[in-house]
Design a protein around this nucleic acid. Structure first.
Lengths: 211, 211
DNA sequence: GGTAGTTGCATACGTCGCGTATGTCAAATA
DNA sequence: TATTTGACATACGCGACGTATGCAACTACC
């Protein structure tokens, strides 16, 4: 009746990861007691230290998991768009929307950088910036946008998005604030395009997307 | 020989504030032991709790102080510029440069938001965003820039700046990275201007400012 | 001017949470 | 079957925070 051994191990690892992710995402990293949420998963801190080394290591693992999910979502969004430019804009807007989800906001944009420093410097994390960077490179190759430093621009977009999300989430009327932020954001992006670009019309007709 | 009483009180408060600010700015909020840095100021935690309530209250006070200083610096920078547009650009670049200072970066952009949530929502803090917002309003009134939502744009700029600073500070070659970031940033700002704006030339000639 | 109350700070204590060292039992290996 | 390895639990020490308490100096009032 009991499952094979490696499967059990992966299962406990997953349980710990899920429990930690939930705790970090709701009450925050500093407020999360390792005793508490490991007990909630039917385990103890022993298992945690065995698999992840320490509390920061656990946060690393959680972030890595979430980053992979977010990257997948972003590439999925951009791949569905009819044009590259539209795909890029959709990607950026989707990024803001994701940053609105409390778990992502708390873990990826608040506690993560505070505890681990700039995550984007890490190897094997922050596929999101890489994804944005790739999109910009393609657009540049297509001649759809002005000459820019892709990585630098991707990082600026990343920063603007996450802060916009913070603003939105803490505002009195998130719906209204979200509209304003996305609109301002879109206006900025719009200016990246080459004035004479023939892809301009496709990009100019996008809506703000429902939340 | 002893000073008047209210002055002594203000002095201990200032000493605590300075000690905390230094500790928070160097080793970080979470790693700062209240026993340690109060002892460094020749005091104990008792004084701290008396004046600031708790550790978070102390961080609040530190942030308020720093925010006031930063706001003053920003308005000073923009007021020295020959044109409004240049003043605005200088202000933005100065903002990035300030975000490079380790103390500001750590306290205002990393630990602050992580511990206290979005500071910009607070009353009486974040005069920086207000300052940027004011500059944008004036530029709009002057007809120098395209139609934008000032506050939303100010917040996007704020977010982009702080993340850019993080990127720069953690990069291998901060000088080089700083150049790239400021350049990309300037390129984005440049596009805010109305194409036919007669103030365009003044803004186009600014350099990246020495650090 | 003496006494009562308040204020500014120090001291003492309880508690909690992290990290480490150690123990234990099942599975893999020989 | 004896031994070792790995997965996890238990036990302990330590540091840090917050609170309760103490005390001395200053103020206020009669």
């Amino acid at each position: 009746m009991s499952k094979p051994r490696p499967e059990m191990i992966a299962e406990t690892r997953a349980k710990l990861l899920a429990a930690a992710r939930h705790a970090f995402g709701t009450i925050g990293y500093a407020q999360s007691s390792m005793d508490d949420f490991t007990a909630g998963a039917g385990l103890t801190r022993g298992a945690l230290y065995h698999h992840f080394g320490d509390k920061k290591g656990l946060l690393q693992a959680v972030i890595q998991e979430m980053d992979a999910e977010m990257t997948a979502r972003l590439t999925s969004v951009s791949s569905r768009a009819p044009t590259r430019w539209q795909g890029f804009v959709d990607e950026c807007v989707a990024y803001i929307q994701m940053a609105l989800e409390p778990e992502i906001q708390r873990i990826m944009f608040r506690d993560g950088p505070a505890v681990l420093g700039d995550i984007s410097q890490w190897p094997s994390t922050n596929g999101c910036i890489a994804a944005l960077s790739r999109s910009l490179s393609q657009l540049k190759a297509d001649g759809a946008i002005i000459e820019v430093d892709e990585e630098a621009t991707a990082r600026l977009i990343n920063g603007a998005s996450s802060h916009a999300a913070l603003w939105i989430a803490n505002s009195e009327d998130p719906q209204e604030t979200s509209k304003r932020a996305v609109e301002a954001f879109r206006a900025l992006l719009e200016r990246l395009k080459k004035p004479e670009s023939d892809t301009a019309k496709a990009g100019a007709t996008i809506s703000t997307m429902g939340s």
